[in-house]
Amino acid sequence: MLSRTADSLFWLGRYSERAGNVARGLGATLRMALLAEPADGAEREWRALMVAAGCEHGFRERHEAAAHEAAIHWLTLDPANPSGIAASVESARRNARSVRTALTVDMWEAINDTWLEFRRLDSGAIKGDRLPGFLDWVKSRTLLFNGAAADTMLRDDAWRFTQLGTILERADNTARLLDSRHGAFAPDVSADAACYAHWQAVLRSVGALRAYQHVYHARLDPRRVAELLLMRTELPRSLLSCYARVERTLQTIANANGGNPGECQRLAGALHAKLRFGRLDSILDGGLHGFLTGIIDENITLGQEIAARYLNGKNA
């Protein structure tokens, strides 16, 4: 496969996943902002979401405070935010168009129809009672694309690079989301109503609230929430599950292209091993923030190594 084709497929997966992640996080933050006390609590919630989305720096350059309307617009319709929904939809469609012949009809229609509908939206789509419906629509379009890929793509290199981008973006989002609320997972945290709301918001942001109830059959507990999102193989958005798939996908790509895995394979294996053989108590006692910061940095390095080995870097 040509490196420019692999690059477009990889970033198609990443941008499509990013749009859905921002929509999920925004939905959870809306609930938290309504409950936030004192008065500056709502602003902290919006900043936490932008930290999780990796776009806080750009927002601060344009806005002094994370006001409700400004934060929502920045995360949804503002094309200047490369991590926002608008830019993600545009970039996903641009990459899909450049490799249209590598996609199935269902995949192309899912991406192109989303782009066309998005272009018809006006600013009223994110105001008042219309915002939850808009966020549900974005999530459903991401699920439609992922489902089309899973059901219709040949399991060849095109599939593998699309999945690689999707999974790497998912791992980054889970790590950033947990890190943005790491204080609620400290070993000595008191289980008050505010912390309970934080744990619930984290689970809602990855669509895992019902999964938690199914796995643990218990009230929310910070240790169990952290375990679910870090180390449970059953949850497709857990870090362990994501890096197991990244390592497996990279190995399959290497086997199909000469068998030499390269540095990216070693890094993926190291991340997988860190989570597979790590101890949750040690992670929490040593500081969840430091652990997740390391994961985020290693994830960035892993993406760079994948690009250096297989991609041409036009989307970087």
Rank of each mutant, 00 (worst) to 15 (best):
G58I: 03
A96Y: 04
F59H: 08
R97A: 12
A87Y: 05
V89S: 06
L103S: 02
A66K: 03
N112Y: 03
W74S: 03
A87V: 11
N81L: 03
R100A: 08
V89G: 02
I85P: 03
T114E: 00
R93F: 13
H68W: 12
S83Y: 13
E90R: 11
T76E: 09
I72G: 01
I72A: 00
T101D: 14
A65K: 14
R97D: 12
A67D: 14
T114L: 10
V99Y: 05
W108Y: 06
H73C: 01
D113W: 03
R62P: 05
I111L: 12
E69V: 13
V105H: 10
P82W: 02
A102H: 04
R97W: 03
R94S: 12
L75K: 05
M107Y: 00
E69I: 12
A65S: 15
P79R: 12
H57Q: 15
E69P: 08
L77K: 01
T114F: 11
A102N: 03
V99H: 01
E90K: 07
V105P: 00
L75C: 10
D113R: 08
A96D: 06
W74D: 04
I111G: 00
H68G: 03
S88T: 06
I72S: 00
T114W: 08
D106A: 14
A67K: 13
E109M: 05
V89P: 04
F59I: 10
A70R: 11
S88E: 08
E90H: 11
G84F: 09
R97Q: 13
H73Y: 12
R94P: 00
G84I: 06
M107K: 01
D113S: 13
A96N: 05
T101Y: 10
R100L: 06
M107G: 02
S91A: 15
E109A: 10
A96Q: 09
S88M: 07
H63S: 06
H73S: 09
R60N: 14
I111V: 15
L75W: 06
E90G: 04
E69T: 15
T101C: 06
W74P: 07
P79H: 11
F59N: 08
A110R: 04
P82F: 02
N95L: 04
E69D: 15
L75F: 06
A65W: 11
T76S: 10
R94N: 07
F59R: 06
N112I: 01
